[in-house]
């Protein structure tokens, strides 16, 4: 996959869960990725997250915090 596109898609899911408290939003994003994304897409998003881990929480971070939190949840449940 094209990393930028995966990031865009994941952030888009997070943006559409913004009405929820952060924890619930992360759960919703995680559930969505688990239900609709193929494992290869989830793995590639994980790769992006790992490669940009140093930027986590900073303005340069390509991933919004809720997506990182969702990936944490996916790691726990997988």
């Amino acid at each position: 996959m094209i990393p930028e596109k995966l990031v865009l898609m994941a952030n888009q899911i997070a943006a559409n869960s913004r009405y929820l408290p952060t924890d619930q939003a992360a759960e919703m994003v995680a559930a969505h990725l688990r239900t609709f994304w193929s494992p290869v897409m989830r793995d590639e998003l994980e790769t992006v997250a790992a490669e940009t881990e140093d930027d986590a929480g900073l303005t340069d971070d390509p991933l919004v915090p809720v997506v990182r939190q969702a990936l944490d949840l996916l790691r726990v449940t997988s």
Binding site: M1, I2, S38
Partner: peptide
């Protein structure tokens, strides 16, 4: 037991060579 690729995902994976 895991979801497969959607059409646009297939295109992206094709361009990635997988």
């Amino acid at each position: 037991s895991e979801p497969g690729l959607r059409i646009p995902n297939m295109f992206d994976e094709a361009l990635s060579g997988t």
